[in-house]
Design a protein around this nucleic acid. Structure first.
Lengths: 138, 138
DNA sequence: GTAACTGCAAAATATTTGCATCCTT
DNA sequence: AAGGATGCAAATATTTTGCAGTTAC
């Protein structure tokens, strides 16, 4: 899998560094979304907090990960699968937050529905976050 | 309108104070969502920052306002119209963020769609945020 | 070798808590 | 009068910035 990670970084014109490899690995290993704090912990106290901030920002800029809106104001990030596979940004899937295990998942197979807006409004992007109980907690 | 504001506060078993009246008035006057910082500014430097935090928290607890999830990690709040009118919490409307004027609106007439989830997932609440250009900016 | 990345320190910003005082009921 | 709300100070937490040293290419 290490090959893939380097590939992803190179494809996005990023130099391959230890922190980027490890943080990206965390996202690939973890089937769900990660908050900044999760990464600091999971990485085993290895990275400077600033490096994590900057790496996440870089990944978002390049479209490797995307941020997920949450009502409680915690920012979480998840892999952009489409991007990783095809190199351009699509993010038309539903996000799911489990009230039991508190994980956030990207439901890549659930496409965001069309929304009929009032006259005069035009839509560029639709974000859907479903809250409930996930398959592992039911 | 002042009567209404006092009514809302009393209905929620909150004592009527100057800051609560003014902050609630801001929400009623402003047809959109407000962030903590907006309130500090709009109120004309009148309230202690801590009071604003506590007032917002109180209003959320009572269901007078609700927080709106945003991807950029800014917390915004808007009136819960259903609550104000009927005293119980419904929040099944779509939120709209304008990329031009940067306002956030509650589209009270646009109901959140049903989402077909994968087997094993159950839904308790659905949040939809549409991003685009609003009727005032088109 | 050069440009880019990291880590430390520190600044700037945001949020929470304790407590004495003041206001609402 | 009593309980709750406010405002100030200060403690925490979060995020950003500058810069010198290090690493990738």
């Amino acid at each position: 899998m290490e090959m893939d990670i380097r590939e992803i970084l190179k494809k996005n014109q990023l130099s391959v560094t230890a922190s980027r490899e490890k943080i990206l690995q965390l996202f690939i290993d973890h089937n769900g979304a990660l908050a900044h704090g999760d990464i600091e912990k999971k990485a085993g106290e290895k990275f400077d907090r600033v490096t994590v901030y900057r790496t996440l920002q870089t990944f978002v800029d390049k479209g490797i990960i995307h941020s997920i809106p949450t009502a409680d104001n915690s920012v979480r990030y998840a892999l952009c699968k489409d991007n990783c596979e095809e190199g351009h940004h699509h993010d038309q899937h539903v996000h799911f937050v489990c009230n039991s295990c508190n994980n956030t998942y990207c439901l890549d197979n659930v496409v965001t529905p069309d929304i009929r807006l009032p006259k005069g409004y035009s839509s560029k992007h639709i974000e859907v976050v479903v809250e409930g109980v996930c398959v592992n907690c039911k």
